[in-house]
Amino acid sequence: MLAYIIKRLFSLIPVLLVVSIAIFLLIHITPGKPAAVMLGMEASEQEIDALNEELGFNLPLYEQYTNWVGKLFKGDLGDSIFMHQPVSEAIMEHIGPTLSLAILAQIIALIIAIPFGIIAAYKRGTITDYSLMGVSLLGMAIPSFLLGLFLMLVIGVKLQWLPVAGYEPLSNGLWTHLQYLILPGISLGTIQAALITRMTRSSMLEVLNLNFIKTARSKGLNEWKVLLKHAFRNAFLPILTVIGQTFGTLVTGAVVVESIFNIPGLGQLILNSIARRDFAVIQGVVLSVTVMYVTINLLVDLLYGAVDPRVRLDRK
């Protein structure tokens, strides 16, 4: 197990290298420079060149990249040009809302998806199965931001049950914290629930046709016990993979929903940084998100052995 973890950690290095090169080049070849944004449209070319020299943006790209990577090895993500603080501090200030939203959305997705997937598999070929799959297909087709706007209009504006937008930290109380996250959580969780539902149904159908399920039924075991204890447990590995991927997607892909609901998470941070050409923040956030996504996948791999003892990650 330890050898497997070390191997996966070392495999992270080339991934981060490719991501760092790609995002660095993409940002620096995009029109618009931080110095011009900072000084405004009335700034002269001499003033812009002087600020670029002060910030180090007049250096060749390879030299700027090596300087940035050298700081990374020291644990320094750089400093924000506009916020006047280290990038690591800016990320820590904005990661809390994003993680809270992602966790709530994942919980909502699992509450919806797992029962629906099991019922659809058990009732395969019936109107119940077709109805649930139709709903899941509709959930996959609706964009999260469109669903979010609809929820804002109906629940927030018309019914006034929940706040339309904004954010309150957990320190102000759990219910107050959740009130501002329920609508965006439903917007994101519903889309992920559709995918998990279809995977749960597919995985359950494969297991329900195996001989040990027929044996369990022939022994007279309760049908729900057969479904949950025997079938679902053996069908859980593919479902766990999708859960890990969807959670990584929720952490990395909530940019639009955070903007709509005015949640000060990583999505809002990176959007503001792109508008201001704050290179250090963009690079730091993208790199940090990549590390989180790969870490989540690693944790899912490690959970395989706990969920199914037949899986041994240290085997060649």
Rank of each mutant, 00 (worst) to 15 (best):
Met1Gln: 09
Leu2Lys: 13
Tyr4Val: 13
Ile6Thr: 14
Lys7Gln: 14
Val15Trp: 02
Val18Trp: 04
Ser20Tyr: 06
Ile23Asp: 07
Phe24Gln: 09
Leu25Phe: 11
Ile27Asp: 00
Leu39Thr: 07
Leu39Arg: 05
Gly40Glu: 10
Ala43Gln: 15
Glu47Tyr: 01
Ile48Pro: 05
Glu54His: 05
Leu55Arg: 06
Asn58His: 04
Gln64Thr: 08
Asn67Gly: 07
Gly70Ser: 06
Gly75Arg: 08
Gly78Arg: 03
Asp79Met: 12
Ser80Gly: 08
Gln85Lys: 15
Ser88Thr: 15
Glu89Asp: 13
Ala90Trp: 01
Ile91Met: 01
Met92Phe: 13
Glu93Ala: 05
Glu93Asn: 06
Ile95Ala: 08
Pro97Leu: 08
Gln106Leu: 11
Ile108Met: 03
Leu110Asn: 06
Ile119His: 07
Tyr122Gly: 02
Tyr122Leu: 14
Ile127Trp: 07
Ile127Gly: 08
Asp129Met: 04
Ser136Gly: 05
Leu137Gly: 14
Leu137Ala: 09
Leu137Cys: 05
Gly139Cys: 08
Met140Lys: 10
Ile142Lys: 01
Leu146Pro: 00
Leu147Asn: 04
Gly148Leu: 08
Met152Glu: 13
Val154Ala: 11
Val157Met: 10
Leu162Ser: 04
Ala165Cys: 00
Leu170Phe: 15
Leu174Glu: 10
His177Cys: 04
Leu181Asp: 02
Gly189Gln: 03
Ile191Tyr: 14
Met199Tyr: 01
Ser202Val: 14
Met204Trp: 08
Leu205Lys: 12
Glu206Ile: 11
Val207Gly: 07
Asn209Thr: 15
Leu210Gly: 06
Leu210Gln: 15
Ile213Gly: 07
Thr215Cys: 02
Ala216Val: 10
Lys219Asn: 05
Lys219Glu: 01
Glu223Leu: 11
Leu227Met: 15
Asn234Gly: 03
Asn234Gln: 12
Phe236Trp: 10
Leu237Ile: 15
Val242Gln: 09
Gln245His: 02
Phe247Cys: 11
Leu250Lys: 10
Val255Tyr: 01
Ile260Glu: 02
Ile260Lys: 01
Asn262Leu: 05
Asn262Gln: 11
Pro264Lys: 10
Gly265Phe: 08
Leu266Thr: 14
Ala275His: 08
Arg277Gly: 04
Asp278Thr: 15
Asp278Val: 11
Val281Ser: 02
Gln283Thr: 14
Val285Lys: 01
Val286Glu: 12
Val289Ala: 13
Val289Tyr: 03
Asn297Pro: 00
Val300His: 04
Asp301Gly: 06
Tyr304Thr: 06
Gly305Arg: 06
Ala306Gln: 05
Arg312Gln: 15
Leu313Ala: 04
Lys316Phe: 01
